[in-house]
Write a protein that binds this DNA or RNA. Structure first.
Lengths: 156, 156
DNA sequence: CGCAGATCGTTTGACAGCAGATGATTTTTG
DNA sequence: CAAAAATCATCTGCTGTCAAACGATCTGCG
């Protein structure tokens, strides 16, 4: 009975159950943090940051964009978008040309290299998602997606 | 037809639909960020940080704890816990006494002031949650809670 | 006892995310 | 047309989070 306090505490608790029961907000944050971490390590292995991936994906889908548009659509801060584009440009995945119509903005364009890189990375995403959400069945993932959609205000 | 590029871009897009459709991880992060922000502003109005609230709640529920135990159970980094406890102590909500059994650790104890403060803050939490998750019905919140629980590994 | 290793609280340094200021350019307005 | 306001990309500074290092203390082993 030498070790009193700590082991007594520990015995009574397993991650303070009240939290999981009541505070949905905190559960949400924890889950988000977990998958975000997984996404980051996945991205690191892939050699392409999450933001970079999204930018490439969007450029490939909708064509050249200003950094502003990329920012707004992808919900990435303008300041951050600068360095994301810096990295992509340095890697040759993207070209930055001044938009001739409005020389304040860039026309960020995906290169062929970038497109190839995107295809590469793209294929591994479903596998990553499968891994990150392996605790949920496909139906449950659908549920979750719907719920999060409502929470984020689908149309807003 | 002076405004070409930007409006054309904007017309085609509303927050890059591919994302919401495919990447469950990103939807999760966005939702989490939204409610976290809401929680922070709520906490700011309440005058009691989220971490501080949790610490008081746990101390009230299970009695004196070491910062270590608080850290682990509440999933707050030890480094952060230091300043959380500093703030609580400065406000008189908590006392820090050295544990006589192990003088490395503290026995963090909630004071009567802290207990009163907790009751005050406690009552406003359900209202906040109701507001933050007003887009979901009670059943949907239950679903979400279950799903997040699975995702976090209920017992692990 | 005496020393090696672990543990607790704290400090430090690195890094992402965001608000606000700046400079270049465009658009609007008198 | 010229001055004022707006917009785009960028830079700077602040905050919060996390990892690693550090002193103090405890435990285990010879």
């Amino acid at each position: 009975m030498a070790t009193t306090t700590r082991s007594a505490e520990r015995a009574r608790l397993t991650y303070f159950p009240q939290l999981a029961a009541e505070r949905l907000d905190i559960a949400l944050c924890r889950a988000s943090a977990a998958v975000a971490r997984a996404a980051d390590t996945h991205a690191a292995e892939e050699g392409l940051g999450v933001g970079q991936h999204l930018v490439l994906q969007m450029l490939d889908a909708v064509g050249p964009c200003s950094q502003q548009t990329l920012s707004e659509e992808l919900r990435i801060d303008r300041s951050v978008m600068v360095s994301v584009c810096d990295d992509l440009e340095r890697a040759g995945h993207v070209r930055r040309e001044r938009n001739p119509r409005d020389r304040r903005s860039y026309a960020v364009t995906i290169t062929d290299t970038g497109r190839r890189r995107l295809v590469e990375a793209q294929t591994s995403v479903p596998a990553f998602l499968d891994d990150a959400f392996h605790a949920l069945t496909p139906e449950e993932r659908g549920q979750l997606s719907t719920l999060l959609g409502k929470l984020l205000g689908v149309g807003a």
